Simulated scan of single mutants.
Amino acid sequence: MSDQSNTGASPEASVLRLLGIMKRLRAPDGCPWDRVQNFATIAPYTLEEAHEVAEAIQRGPDFPALLDELGNLLFQVVYHAQMASELGHFAFADVATAISDKMVRRHPHVFGEATARDVMSQSNAWEVQKAEERASRAKAGTLAGVPVNLPALTRAAKLTRRAARVGFDWPDVGGVLDKLEEEAAELRVELPGADPVRMADEVGDLLFVLANLARKLELDPEECLRGANAKFERRFQGVEARLARSGLTPADVDLEAMEAAWREVKTEEK
């Protein structure tokens, strides 16, 4: 496979150009907006771009969009590296070296003398490596190192997956469903009092158990919810379209009429 891009530029030249653009933007006579940014202000954009990459993949993947979104995400990495370089901590090359070293270290069957069978025979070999790396960074504990800024459902699944590795888990899916019913019952108890703090706590418990349920079923809770969002959006738009054929909008009809249209849309999808 050629290491040249479709534009004819080498990967090295393309990366150097991007690094140069980033440095110019942050220069004293660069872009006023870019010059005043910091890690905290850029972090939300980094998360947003990662989600947009996932969305482009989910759409097929949509390769033109994926190319664009991967570029946006790469720019976020370059942005953070440039800010770190300005503070004297590390540069983009250090980021690339660190991840390269990590991948070589975690794949001794590819880059070392171990065989694939050697690696696969070691239970949770990858997690053992990661635990050792966390320990070297003075992050102790089973749950150490799970990023706080992950989407909440994703983080819940990761936290419970970590706990499950040391035996803190339900034996089967049935146990999770029982817990879900228990949490729903606790929410019902709080409804008459309508205390927002208590209800938020109970709804949080419900969502956490649902993330556990997805994990036990070997599903990604974020993907499940994204699918549900897309389905709701598609069906509600179908309801609006059906009403529009009669010159109506949802605001013109009652809930019963909208429910009837919803059922018709669902039937058509089957």
Results as ranks from 00 to 15, higher is better:
residue 93 A to D: 13
residue 102 K to W: 12
residue 102 K to Q: 10
residue 77 V to I: 14
residue 52 E to L: 08
residue 85 S to V: 02
residue 70 L to K: 06
residue 92 F to N: 04
residue 92 F to I: 11
residue 113 E to M: 08
residue 99 I to L: 12
residue 48 E to P: 04
residue 35 R to V: 02
residue 111 F to K: 05
residue 111 F to D: 11
residue 38 N to A: 06
residue 73 L to I: 04
residue 97 T to P: 00
residue 109 H to K: 03
residue 114 A to N: 00
residue 64 P to H: 14
residue 48 E to L: 15
residue 56 A to G: 07
residue 62 D to Y: 04
residue 83 M to F: 05
residue 95 V to L: 07
residue 63 F to W: 15
residue 77 V to Q: 05
residue 84 A to H: 02
residue 92 F to T: 08
residue 46 T to V: 15
residue 39 F to M: 00
residue 62 D to M: 09
residue 92 F to L: 15
residue 39 F to R: 01
residue 39 F to K: 00
residue 96 A to M: 03
residue 115 T to F: 07
residue 107 H to S: 09
residue 88 G to V: 08
residue 36 V to N: 00
residue 106 R to E: 08
residue 102 K to F: 13
residue 84 A to V: 01
residue 105 R to G: 02
residue 105 R to C: 02
residue 68 D to L: 10
residue 60 G to D: 05
residue 112 G to W: 02
residue 107 H to C: 04
residue 86 E to I: 01
residue 87 L to A: 09
residue 44 P to I: 00
residue 56 A to E: 07
residue 46 T to F: 15
residue 63 F to Q: 12
residue 100 S to R: 08
residue 101 D to R: 13
residue 58 Q to L: 13
residue 85 S to R: 09
residue 114 A to S: 03
residue 80 H to Y: 04
residue 51 H to V: 03
residue 108 P to D: 02
residue 61 P to N: 09
residue 52 E to R: 06
residue 86 E to H: 03
residue 72 N to D: 15
residue 94 D to P: 06
residue 97 T to H: 11
residue 68 D to F: 12
residue 62 D to Q: 07
residue 76 Q to G: 15
residue 35 R to Q: 07
residue 36 V to T: 01
residue 75 F to K: 01
residue 114 A to T: 00
residue 69 E to L: 04
residue 74 L to N: 12
residue 54 A to H: 13
residue 94 D to Q: 06
residue 109 H to F: 12
residue 86 E to A: 10
residue 112 G to D: 02
residue 87 L to M: 06
residue 69 E to Y: 03
residue 107 H to T: 07
residue 70 L to F: 14
residue 58 Q to K: 11
residue 82 Q to M: 09
residue 49 E to S: 09
residue 64 P to G: 14
residue 53 V to W: 10
residue 80 H to M: 13
residue 72 N to V: 02
residue 80 H to F: 06
residue 82 Q to L: 05
residue 38 N to I: 03
residue 103 M to E: 04
residue 77 V to S: 03
residue 85 S to H: 09
residue 60 G to C: 11
residue 80 H to T: 05
residue 49 E to R: 13
residue 56 A to D: 06
residue 60 G to L: 06
residue 57 I to T: 11
residue 60 G to S: 07
residue 112 G to E: 03
residue 85 S to C: 09
residue 53 V to R: 05
residue 41 T to M: 07
residue 95 V to Y: 01
residue 61 P to C: 11
residue 70 L to Y: 11
residue 94 D to G: 07
residue 61 P to T: 07
residue 65 A to H: 13
residue 46 T to L: 15
